[in-house]
Simulated scan of single mutants.
Amino acid sequence: MLVLILAVVVLLVIGGCACVYWEARGDAPRWARVVAKATLLGSEFARSASRTSRSRRSSMGDD
């Protein structure tokens, strides 16, 4: 079951990256632009969460 969930997540990530590439070329339909925007927002969220986690660890002296 866990492998199935991981496979779905990987496929969603690959699809999101493909939509970002397609949108960057400039000829993507509206739905692909929405998916690309969601993918980029998700990556920004993950990046900010990672920064917050790192800053908490360094302020606690766990480095």
Rank of each mutant, 00 (worst) to 15 (best):
R30P: 09
A24K: 11
R33F: 01
E44M: 15
A46K: 03
S50V: 08
I14T: 10
A32W: 01
P29E: 01
G16F: 01
S48A: 13
D27V: 07
G42N: 02
K37P: 00
W22Y: 09
Y21W: 09
G61M: 03
L12G: 04
V20G: 00
R33K: 03
R57P: 08
R56Q: 15
D62L: 15
C17T: 07
A28C: 03
V9C: 08
V13D: 01
R51Y: 10
V3C: 12
G15F: 02
V20Y: 03
A32P: 03
W31L: 07
E44L: 13
S43F: 15
L4C: 11
R30E: 08
C19I: 03
L11E: 09
D63W: 11
A7L: 03
A18E: 01
A46W: 09
T39W: 01
A28S: 05
S59F: 10
T39I: 00
M1E: 07
R51H: 09
R47P: 05
L41F: 06
R57L: 14
C17I: 12
R25I: 04
L6T: 12
A32K: 04
S50L: 14
L11H: 07
V9Q: 11
S48L: 14
D27Q: 12
G61Q: 03
V34Y: 00
S58Y: 11
L41W: 06
A46M: 05
R56L: 13
S53T: 05
C19Y: 01
T39G: 00
V20T: 02
R54F: 11
D62S: 11
V9E: 10
